[in-house]
């Protein structure tokens, strides 16, 4: 499986990464290398292996449904670029 330059640009756009032509070509070569490696690994017979979703063979610990956080808005907003009326201000979002 090989990747096209357009696909690289699309992925970069989805991830909000700005790439120039040169960078895109470099990324294409690197990503294609990774795909080649995956292709190689796909030759291994894994039919008897249970699929995993996580590298560690552990199960998730849960927390009880209790409110443990207090209001620290002032602290958190002290590092925000712009706040008003308790809100974080960001550049206008147009849908």
């Amino acid at each position: 499986m090989s990747l096209s330059l357009d696909e690289v640009k699309r992925i970069a756009n989805l991830a909000r990464i700005e790439v120039g032509e040169e960078e895109a070509s470099a990324a294409l070569a690197q990503l294609s290398g990774i795909f080649d490696l995956i292709q190689q690994m796909q030759a291994v017979d894994t039919s008897a292996i249970k699929p995993v979703s996580h590298a560690q063979d552990l199960m998730q610990r849960l927390r009880p449904d209790i409110v443990t956080e207090v209001d620290q808005r002032e602290l958190f907003q002290s590092i925000a670029p712009q706040v008003e009326a308790g809100l974080y201000l960001v550049p206008k979002v147009i849908e």
Binding site: D65, I66, T68, E69, D71, A85, G86
Partner: peptide, 29 residues
């Protein structure tokens, strides 16, 4: 209808002052 959020210990009570119930996890610090 939980008291706290799904992945943090911040309250879910409706009608709080803006961002008073947004903890470090909810802010993705």
């Amino acid at each position: 209808s939980t008291r706290s959020k799904i992945f943090s210990g911040a309250s879910t009570a409706f009608g709080a002052a803006p961002n008073a119930e947004a903890c470090a996890v909810d802010l993705a610090l």
